[in-house]
């Protein structure tokens, strides 16, 4: 494989990792708040907070890893996206900052308050919406480049069908992924009442993801026909994605193998996300940046890959330890240890 292909594969895998863990986190925040509103916070609250407490910081690192990595492997992206995304990027940053710190304030601080919970719940939906605009912009048509100035066409972005279809898909995915995961977690914790509620959210939560992804396809066809044609070449990936979705819903409906059901949800998003990514290539930013035009020099690229491998050797055992202690430890999940 070429350097740029290794680079984008590594980054895309990490972005996929972020998509999953962040969706669980964002959605859990929303459900925690929603649970409070409909008066069932005592039912689903404990399950959610037991999962979230030890891992929220790790979630954030996935994102940092991605944007540091993309500037390292593809320095040209810093220039284009950096200049254009000043406003949406700053808004997303502020929301992330409010969310992360208020989570810590509420969770480790002395007092829980509704305001903290509202901040945590609402940012859970606003952040994915804000971050998803990066995908929208990457399709081209929302930037004007003249000389050494890159300008984001805010109005075009706001009135674009494609942009709203992507936002809808992002928000619905967050709700579906997290409810599917929390269903599994509640089942693991043998918390029957929480399980019923979360299972109900998961069963209904999947449908909007399918509908909104259809919207995205239709809107993409109008917005960037070249990319749309490319998606047809990897139609089977989207087919597998749909198949995984149907399997997951069937398992949740039959009330069995919630763990497998969540793996199916992960596969649903893996196939769709990688299908989207592959069909997007070779462009990083249509039509200005391609993989080969923006890749870093070979020396730095090799150094990054070597350090990445070394980093994984350190991280994977640590992550396994984290998961074993908190996710797969029946005692912890049930809340029996402090």
């Amino acid at each position: 494989m070429q350097l740029e292909q290794i680079g984008i594969t590594v980054l895309w895998i990490f972005l996929y990792g972020y998509l999953i863990v962040a969706s669980i986190d964002f959605g859990a925040g929303f459900y925690a708040y929603y649970g409070k509103v409909i008066g069932i916070e005592n039912v689903i609250g404990p399950v959610i907070s037991r999962y979230l407490s030890p891992v929220w910081e790790v979630t954030n690192v996935f994102l940092v890893f991605f944007f540091v990595g993309i500037v390292g492997f593809f320095p040209e992206t810093a220039y284009y996206y950096g200049t254009a995304l000043l406003l949406p990027g700053s808004v997303a940053l502020i929301l992330l900052a409010v969310r992360g710190s208020f989570y810590a304030f509420a969770n480790y601080g002395a007092k829980k308050s509704n305001l903290y919970l509202l901040a945590y719940g609402s940012t859970g939906l606003l952040i994915p919406a804000a971050l998803s605009t990066v995908f929208t912009i990457s399709e081209g048509g929302f930037l004007s480049v003249s000389g050494n100035t890159v300008t984001l066409l805010m109005e075009e972005l706001f009135f674009s069908t494609y942009s709203w279809a992507v936002v809808l898909l992002a928000v619905s995915s967050v709700l579906f992924i997290s409810s599917a995961f929390l269903t599994y977690y509640a089942d693991h914790a043998e918390d029957k009442r929480a399980l019923e509620w979360l299972r109900y959210f998961a069963l209904w939560g999947g449908i909007p993801t399918i509908i909104s992804s259809l919207f995205v396809f239709i809107a993409l066809r109008n917005h960037n026909p070249e990319h749309f044609q490319n998606t047809l070449k990897v139609w089977w990936m989207f087919g597998l994605s749909f198949g995984s979705y149907v399997t997951s819903i069937w398992l949740i409906w039959r009330r069995k193998n919630y763990g497998t059901a969540f793996v199916m949800v992960m596969l649903q998003f893996a196939f769709a996300f990688f299908g989207y990514g592959i069909s997007h290539l070779p462009y990083l930013l249509y039509p200005y940046l391609t993989l080969s035009s923006s890749v870093t020099n070979a020396t730095m690229g090799r150094a990054l890959i070597v350090s990445f491998v070394a980093g994984l050797v350190l991280l994977v055992p640590a992550l396994v330890l984290l998961l074993r202690l908190f996710l797969f430890s029946a005692k912890y999940v049930k809340g029996e240890t402090s």
């Binding site: 910081e57 940092v64 990595g69 992550l319």
Partner: peptide, 19 residues
């Protein structure tokens, strides 16, 4: 970009064990 990249690893490591 190498030390920037390594910094995220170091931080990743710390975040996991702090949790």
């Amino acid at each position: 970009s190498l030390p920037l990249f390594l910094e995220t690893f170091a931080f990743f490591f710390e975040a996991i064990f702090l949790g």
